Simulated scan of single mutants.
Amino acid sequence: MDAVLRVTEVFKSIRETKFSGIRSPGEFFDYHRISRPADVNQAISRISYNTRYFSGNYGLIIAVLAVYAVITNYLLLISLAFLVFGFAAINKFAPEATQFGEHTITQKHLYTGLFVIGIPLLWISSPIGTFFWLVGASGVLILGHACILEPGVESEYATIQENV
């Protein structure tokens, strides 16, 4: 029960810190502010401002893409579930050594068996490829959005506030 409270507190703190800066969909998808940057300097300036301004929205995009990547890669989902639930089951149901005939099975033996099966299963499910897909897909979406969206009027005042 204590672990459940800690998990809910962690999610609450993430929501308060990371997702408190989520801008409204109307502002994030404002098609009136879409334009091609004139040069590379303007593109870099837009990316710099928009990644700070829409950081909550971009974090949400990365989270949604990560969930999508794990759900569509069934073998990765199964191997992660196997490792997580196996670890939890060993901690809950086998805290002490168990005697089977002449053999004594300890937590160390159970963890070894879990990792001997789980790590190759995880390796076959290509988590590295999934990670690079996530980096590429989120990079293209975020940099593309940040580059083509003109900063709002409030960006003009951001430099004045920093200098004061």
Rank of each mutant, 00 (worst) to 15 (best):
T130A: 10
I105G: 01
V7C: 07
L76H: 01
R33G: 07
V7T: 09
L121M: 07
I78F: 04
F19N: 00
S35P: 00
E16R: 13
T104R: 03
Y49K: 03
R52A: 09
Y157Q: 12
F131M: 13
G21D: 08
S48G: 10
I90H: 04
P120I: 01
L77E: 02
V40H: 12
Q99Y: 08
L80G: 13
N163P: 11
A66L: 11
E96S: 12
S45Y: 00
A146P: 05
L83T: 00
I90S: 05
R46C: 06
A97V: 01
A43E: 02
I44A: 14
I14R: 09
V70I: 13
D2R: 07
Q107E: 07
K92V: 15
P95T: 06
V153Q: 04
G129D: 03
K92F: 15
H32A: 14
R52E: 11
N91R: 11
E154G: 01
A63R: 04
F115V: 04
P127F: 07
L83E: 05
E27L: 01
N163Y: 14
K108W: 01
W133F: 15
E9I: 07
V84K: 10
I148E: 02
E156G: 14
V164A: 13
S55I: 09
K18W: 15
G113A: 04
D2I: 06
A81Q: 09
G101D: 00
I117G: 06
T104Y: 02
V140F: 10
A81H: 09
A3E: 13
F115R: 06
L110T: 00
E27S: 03
L75C: 09
A94I: 03
A137T: 09
A81T: 13
A158K: 06
A94L: 01
K92D: 15
N41Q: 13
S13T: 10
A88Y: 15
G26A: 00
A88I: 15
N57L: 01
F131H: 13
